[in-house]
Design a binder for these strands. Structure first.
Length: 288
DNA sequence: TATTCGTGGGC
DNA sequence: TGCCCAAGAAT
């Protein structure tokens, strides 16, 4: 089974891979790590400029750790989920203080860093250091779900069967395993996309279970709709934008002007303070 | 395990 | 237009 997938996808990647900064031979492990944080739930296109500016300003973990966390939040800009910026700063601090300013190269150590979950630990070990790890992201899950299981979309959360399937497919020698992982992810990002997959251009179209079954539509439980307008998330975003765009601290009045509904506004501000994304000194508010 | 956590682009 | 989703993690 693996031979019908692995070989064609590896060859497809050789001819179709995007030239991304964190994939270049000269890219540092820190560059890879920064990219993985930024790419969590955020498209490549939006990450590119922020990643470049970030590496220019903070070429090493200690360079970032030596500045206030608020600078990371500010530089994060509008990538979204700004707690990632806080966690990246915290991870950089740990790396500076306990790992000789060197991004760890093994899954277990990476996994202990703030903001580094199963996927990100496997991705950094694999893409920065060529380690052999099962890299299971949304792209890989979708590709394997279609080609092997014959379903349009995988389950909500990773199943044991999914993980075993991915582990069984992973090539034995580390360099090939790493190449395979980035290749499957790229196939999911460019060809085997969530909507309007380009099956006619797929290197494994002749062995895809989903295509062979006539591309049956997703049958599982409906995915929760992710509304945004009017939510606490939007409110938090508005409040934090005021802080990002201000040179120093701001007054409560300035924050009040960013959102009409007072109860929700107060709740959002309290949660931002609890998260450490905003700090209060007397009656002024600022980035940490 | 189900929620919560931003933002912007494509159709 | 409104809806879907994009290299997840933490709780």
């Amino acid at each position: 089974m693996s031979s019908t997938l692995v070989g064609p996808i590896l060859r497809w990647y050789d001819d179709n891979a995007r030239d991304l900064p964190w994939r270049r031979p000269e890219a540092s492990a820190w560059s890879v790590m920064v990219s993985e944080f930024m790419l969590q739930q955020t498209p490549v296109r939006r990450v590119l400029p922020v990643h470049a500016a970030w590496l220019e300003r903070w070429p090493t973990p200690s360079a970032l750790a030596d500045e206030p966390a608020g600078e990371a939040v500010r530089a994060w800009g509008r990538l979204g989920y700004p707690r990632r910026a806080l966690r990246l700063h915290a991870a950089a601090t740990t790396i500076r203080d306990h790992h000789d300013d060197t991004v760890p190269d093994d899954y277990a150590t990476l996994r202990t860093l703030p903001g580094v979950g199963d996927y990100t630990a496997a991705a950094i070990a694999t893409f920065a250091y060529g380690r052999r790890q099962v890299v299971l992201d949304t792209n890989v899950r979708r590709v394997l779900g279609r080609t092997v299981a014959g379903v349009e979309f995988p389950a909500r959360s990773v199943t044991k069967a999914e993980r075993e399937l991915a582990a069984g497919l992973l090539p034995t020698d580390p360099p090939t395993a790493a190449a395979w992982s980035v290749s499957v992810m790229e196939l999911g990002a460019l060809i085997c996309t969530a909507d309007r997959p380009r099956c006619e251009a797929c290197p494994v179209r002749t062995s895809c279970a989903w295509l062979a079954a006539g591309k049956p539509s997703y049958q599982g439980p409906p995915r929760p709709v992710q509304d945004y307008a009017g939510t606490d998330r939007q409110c938090r975003g508005r409040l934090l934008a005021v802080l990002r765009d201000a040179p120093g601290s701001v007054s409560l009045d300035q924050l009040d002007a960013a959102w009409d509904e007072p109860v929700q506004r107060a709740r959002a501000l309290a949660s931002l303070l609890a998260d450490g994304l905003i700090v209060r000194a007397d009656d002024r508010y600022a980035l940490p």
